[in-house]
Amino acid sequence: MNWMQRQRLLGYVFIAPNLIGMTIFMLIPALFSFYLMFTDWVFANGQPPQFIGFGNFKRMIEDDLFAVSVRNTLLILIPVPISIMLGFLIAVMLNNRVYFQKTLRAFFFAPYFTSGIAIAFVWMVLFQPSSGPINAFLGSIGIADPPKWFASPDTAMYAVLIMMTAGGIGYNMIIYLAALQEISSEQLEAAKIDGATFGQLLRLIILPLVSPTTFFLMITGFIGSIKGFGMIYAITQGGPANSTTVFSIFAYKKAFNFYEMGYASAVSWTMFLLILGITLIQWAGQKKWVHY
């Protein structure tokens, strides 16, 4: 065995634990769920899976809750560009000389390294309709009938959108900060000497130079949002009246409340196709605005 071959072997040894873990915990379940989506399998009822072709997809189309979950899943994409924009603006601010720069950076990033469930519970308290601080403030400025936030089917989704927007800012800010540090100061100084205003610097130099970062954040943000589950489930379980049921909660309820694994697999693969479609569209569109 020569040096090159030994290196190759070493490479396989290093990736083996991950590969085995991926195979057992991700690949095999994914392939199994692909098979299950064409069956009517109900877990723990003693019956083997029966092949029903596209029966689960037919059922999905006729299911009112599926339509609700599609709408809500598309709605939770809205926080992605908003939190990217806010993350970028904060990063630009913190990249310049400001007082308490490090403290502010830690402050904005804190939600990212805090448990999502803990953050969700903080939002739950903030949005508490009768005794929460947000409604207390709204009451103090004369709003007699403030929104019920998570407690009303009319406003629960808005509360989720606000929570998710705020939750994404810290991560986006840190990634942008790293990208901003990569921009050569010569380019910025040259532009300044040529008389560029701050707005022009931002629009014509900084934004194009961080566009690969923006692209990365858009892709991962959309994927994360569509898969979003924990924070919403922790507060609303998809309610009240299914008003915050998104794809992942819909699939979870079918799988783990009713053990309908075949149907839940079909929903999960539909979610995968949605993510794939949105990612491909973004990938195709990047040529027009991402500068490498």
Partner: peptide
Amino acid sequence: LMPHTEQITSK
């Protein structure tokens, strides 16, 4: 009585 939807979302 605490409104039901407030109860289920503030636990």
